[in-house]
Simulated scan of single mutants.
Amino acid sequence: MKRFALIGAAGYIAPRHMRAIKDTGNKLVSAYDINDSVGVIDSIAPESEFFTEFERFYEHAWRLKRTSDHKLDYVAVCSPNYLHQAHIAAGLRLGCDVICEKPLVPTVECLDDLTSIERETGRKVYNILQLRHHQAIINLKNKVASEIVEHKHDVELTYITSRGKWYMESWKGDPRKSYGVATNIGVHFYDMLHFIFGKLQRSVVHFNNECKAAGYLEYEKARVRWFLSIDANDLPEVIKGKKTTYRSITVDGKEMEFSDGFTDLHTVSYNEILEGRGYGLEDARHCVETVEYIRSSVVSRVENDEGHPFLETLNR
């Protein structure tokens, strides 16, 4: 049984990590968050220590490190995006392997810094890239890889996940902390596209503001028009008032059905990590490069057929 600490225990994604720790037969020993709305711990790991000050959390973990029977094995990081690098580094220096939510870090330079700390400490960082474990995505990857005649597939990615006014008041609405919509809600889709279709060859941004972004990505085996939004006004008329989220991926005009099968992907990810098959820093490099480029790109005019259809609505 491995012993875990969790940083960012009050966040939206933290309960999935807590359940993954429990469901894989391991123990949450300690948790930290500046907010104390963490009652979910009672139903998952009621004996866990909890701290609202990082210094006290770190001191507790350091004391555990001095005793071989009680030291931590893993630190799970679910804190706001801009704190990931610092919290990962702290976990490594505590002598732990680290499991971190996406986006792992904002830039390749940050990724290289963590690689250096891995070498210094002898510990390892794992990124949660859960879509790589989704069976529908694995099936598509295998189908593309098995094609005798290679060609570029036409892909359309649309993801609208409505957020209320709270979003812009939180750290997620601050691009200095979340790194913007394309990074915050899009990074795992960019990883998925790379996982299926190979290396990115070209990237163009057609629209980018605080609540939506759109562009074109060309991979070795796909041409992708993408649109991401947190604005409920962008939902298709047929689902407005019925659903708050719209997720669609079409490949060569055919909808890829992957709405189901998300429930346990964090637990699957944890199992893979614990069995030595987790995704490390180099696995995350491609999607980190992609979002870094998107954030630094100047918005360009749409050329040929590279624009996502939803752009027409924005430009009216």
Rank of each mutant, 00 (worst) to 15 (best):
T267L: 11
T267C: 01
T267W: 06
T267G: 00
V268Y: 10
V268Q: 13
Y270I: 01
Y270K: 08
Y270T: 03
N271V: 14
N271M: 12
N271F: 07
E272A: 01
E272H: 06
E272C: 07
L274A: 07
L274D: 00
E275L: 01
E275F: 01
E275A: 13
G276K: 03
R277I: 03
R277F: 02
R277H: 15
G278R: 00
G280I: 10
G280C: 03
L281P: 05
L281W: 02
L281I: 00
L281Q: 06
L281Y: 01
E282Q: 11
D283G: 07
D283N: 04
A284G: 10
A284C: 04
A284L: 03
R285Q: 10
R285M: 12
H286L: 06
C287V: 04
C287Y: 06
C287F: 01
V288Y: 01
V288S: 02
E289G: 01
E289F: 10
T290V: 08
T290L: 04
V291I: 05
V291H: 00
E292Q: 10
E292H: 04
E292S: 07
Y293M: 09
I294W: 01
I294H: 09
I294F: 08
I294E: 02
R295Q: 13
R295P: 00
S296L: 09
S296K: 12
S297F: 02
S297G: 13
S297Y: 14
S297Q: 09
S297K: 09
V298N: 08
V298R: 08
V298I: 14
V299Q: 09
V299I: 13
S300G: 11
S300M: 14
S300P: 08
R301H: 14
V302L: 15
E303Y: 09
N304C: 14
N304M: 10
D305Q: 09
D305T: 11
D305N: 12
D305S: 12
E306L: 01
E306I: 06
E306F: 11
E306Q: 07
E306A: 08
E306S: 04
G307P: 01
P309Q: 06
P309R: 05
P309M: 03
P309T: 02
F310I: 11
F310Y: 15
L311V: 02
L311R: 15
L311C: 04
L311H: 03
T313H: 14
T313E: 15
T313D: 15
L314P: 08
L314T: 14
L314F: 13
L314A: 12
